[in-house]
Amino acid sequence: MNKQITAASLAFAFGTAIAVAAMPVAAEEKTMEKEKCFGIAMKGKNDCKAGAGTSCAGTSKMDYQGNSWSFVPKGTCEKTASPTSPSGKGQLAEFKEKKA
């Protein structure tokens, strides 16, 4: 089936779209009455991470030691279902895909 795309069919599509979009959620118009609020950005999303007196923030973390890749990712991956994985879950090393 290959429907012809014509001016008439597009006008119909818009008409239907207007009708469909007009139906929902009574509160929607109200949500438009918002204002931009500055100064509430997530941390790290403002222009400068460190304010006065915080120049040494983070120094105790010693994160930048990650040159060893002997460890594998540990997280929620192994809880995630995967039909191509032999165990049925995501795996932390490469695996041969089986047919899903």
Binding site: M42, K43, G44, K45, K49, A50, S55, C56, A57, G58, T59, K61, M62, D63, Y64
Partner: peptide, 16 residues
């Protein structure tokens, strides 16, 4: 210390 600050803050930004 400075080097660690640079790295940690940029890694923090990606994590956020």
């Amino acid at each position: 210390v400075y080097r660690n600050n640079v790295m940690v803050s940029l890694i923090d930004a990606l994590a956020d």
